[in-house]
Simulated assay, not measured.
Amino acid sequence: MTHHPKPDPACLDLTQVHWVVSSHSGGGGDCVMMGTAAGHVLIGDTKNPSHTPLVFTPSKIRSFLRGVREGELDHFTSTG
Results as ranks from 00 to 15, higher is better:
36 T>N: 01
14 L>H: 12
70 E>R: 15
14 L>V: 11
5 P>F: 06
48 N>T: 09
24 H>S: 04
8 D>A: 08
16 Q>A: 14
62 R>I: 09
28 G>Q: 00
74 D>R: 13
32 V>E: 01
57 T>P: 01
58 P>F: 01
79 T>G: 14
33 M>L: 02
29 G>W: 00
21 V>L: 11
28 G>F: 00
79 T>L: 15
35 G>C: 02
37 A>I: 07
65 L>M: 12
71 G>W: 12
46 T>A: 07
28 G>E: 00
28 G>W: 00
29 G>E: 05
54 L>C: 04
76 F>E: 14
19 W>I: 12
72 E>H: 15
78 S>I: 14
16 Q>I: 06
48 N>I: 03
71 G>N: 15
41 V>K: 08
6 K>V: 10
60 K>S: 10
53 P>N: 09
22 S>H: 09
48 N>H: 11
1 M>D: 08
37 A>S: 11
22 S>F: 09
31 C>N: 05
23 S>T: 05
51 H>G: 09
74 D>F: 13
27 G>W: 03
57 T>L: 01
22 S>D: 07
76 F>S: 13
7 P>R: 09
45 D>L: 04
13 D>R: 10
18 H>Y: 02
60 K>Q: 11
64 F>Q: 00
29 G>A: 01
41 V>Q: 08
71 G>S: 13
44 G>V: 03
17 V>K: 03
68 V>L: 14
6 K>M: 10
78 S>G: 14
30 D>S: 00
78 S>C: 15
18 H>L: 08
73 L>N: 13
20 V>F: 09
25 S>C: 10
30 D>T: 00
34 M>P: 07
9 P>K: 10
19 W>N: 09
40 H>V: 01
12 L>H: 10
59 S>Q: 08
8 D>I: 06
42 L>V: 08
49 P>W: 00
74 D>T: 14
32 V>M: 06
49 P>M: 05
25 S>V: 02
10 A>S: 10
35 G>E: 01
29 G>L: 01
56 F>W: 04
18 H>I: 07
58 P>C: 07
1 M>C: 05
80 G>C: 15
67 G>R: 13
50 S>P: 00
58 P>I: 03
41 V>F: 08
44 G>M: 02
41 V>D: 09
60 K>H: 07
11 C>N: 14
33 M>N: 05
48 N>D: 06
12 L>K: 10
60 K>V: 02
39 G>T: 09
72 E>I: 12
24 H>K: 05
21 V>A: 04
80 G>R: 14
31 C>F: 04
9 P>L: 13
